[in-house]
């Protein structure tokens, strides 16, 4: 796969993360705001070992330790399945076609089948364009929400801090993609990844902020703060504009699912070149099956417990190994010189 640019990496990861943010199932209150900020800081720290690794480490690791590659494949399948499960549970009926959720899921899966066949390079190019459209829709949302916002509803609280952090982590499955994609990036990958982490946190904070200030008590009752916020925040009085978010919804879900499928395909191709052709459709089918049988809270729990291992422990052990090897080489060189 050709190198991707750092702004493309930021955009891909951000959009995949944004899908998870819009599917946050519930709001715990003002305490979720500092919890989100703290979770973001913690994620920046946890990503340090991944970013310190040499380029190409992931590819070499999965070729040498195929079990590790399988682990990552299963993880990304679960992330993709979680996306479909969130679609099932979170999406309000107005945002889906009249034929129902199953039709919507199948249509999205068919679209993702095409988009993943275009390759991760196409995803990388499409991501900044989709991001531009997404930012436009956010502006519309903010314009509508600002009219209803009451700043007296916001206060600094630490109640429900830990549940808030847990939710944020369980919606951050795309973090594992950092290691895979950072392998492809040309330069300034630290900047790209940090921008994504901070951007996602800012987006989450924005949604929470306006949910609390503009949504008021209705947000806590209805759940799914983003969708409730879009229903309540209308920029124009005579019309309901939340149908426009269908486009946001579709774009984000496709980006999210395509990223997971693309990465599974990329990993499978590196481990078993013969898997190149069929890995994408098979992974989509797996995702649909998993989503059908498991609810999103189960999948999110799996993501929550797997994430520290995949993004921190494994890369850290690789980094320690690399460091030890470099010390050994220096030691050997010193012996030769002396």
């Amino acid at each position: 796969m050709s190198k991707i640019h750092n702004h493309q990496l930021t955009a891909i990861l951000f959009l995949s993360g944004a899908w998870s943010v819009i599917c946050i199932p519930s709001l715990y209150g003002n305490g979720q705001l500092p919890a989100t900020a703290a979770a973001c800081l913690l994620q920046i720290l946890l990503c340090l070992p991944m970013l310190a690794l040499q380029q190409g480490t992931f590819g070499r690791t999965i070729k040498n330790y195929k079990i590790m590659g399988m682990l990552y494949i299963i993880f990304f399948l679960i992330c993709g399945a979680n996306g479909f499960a969130q679609l099932w549970e979170a999406a309000p009926p107005q945002l889906l076609p009249s034929s129902g959720k199953l039709t919507a899921a199948v249509l999205i899966a068919l679209t993702c089948f095409y988009t993943s066949s275009a390759g991760l390079r196409a995803t990388a190019r499409a991501a900044p364009i989709v991001m531009g459209l997404f930012i436009l829709s956010l502006i519309v949302l903010i314009l509508g929400a600002w009219k209803r916002a009451d700043l007296n509803r916001i206060s600094f609280q630490t109640e429900n801090f830990l549940p808030g952090m847990k939710i944020y982590f369980s919606l951050s499955g795309e973090l594992a993609a950092v290691w895979v994609l950072a392998d492809q990036i040309q330069n300034h990958k630290n900047t790209a990844v940090n921008l994504y982490l901070i951007g996602k946190a800012c987006f989450c904070l924005l949604i929470l902020f306006f949910s609390i200030t503009a949504g008021g008590r209705l947000i806590y009752l209805n759940g799914y703060p983003f969708f409730t916020l879009t229903a309540l925040s209308q920029p124009l009085q005579g019309q309901r504009a939340d149908a426009l978010y269908i486009l946001v919804f579709v774009m984000l879900h496709i980006m999210h699912t395509t990223l997971q499928t693309g990465i599974v395909e990329h990993i499978a191709e590196q481990m078993y070149p013969i898997a190149e052709k069929w890995s994408a459709p098979v992974s989509l089918i797996f995702m649909l099956i998993l989503a059908y049988f498991f609810k999103s809270d189960i999948l999110e729990t799996i993501i929550f417990y797997s994430l520290p291992v995949l993004i921190f422990l494994i890369p850290l052990s690789m980094r320690i190994r690399q460091f030890a090897r470099s010390l050994h080489k220096k030691g050997t060189l010193y012996e030769k010189i002396s």
């Binding site: 493309q8 679209t111 275009a118 990388a124 190019r125 991501a127 900044p128 989709v130 579709v250 774009m251």
Partner: peptide, 30 residues
């Protein structure tokens, strides 16, 4: 919903188009 789906397909079709290593979406993407 359908327009969004097809829009993504067309966008991906455009982004996947390149010739001799030159993506047609340059300089917008990358």
């Amino acid at each position: 919903f359908g327009i969004g789906l097809l829009g993504m397909i067309v966008l991906y079709n455009l982004c996947a188009t390149e010739t001799f290593g030159f993506p047609v979406t340059a300089p917008l993407a990358p």
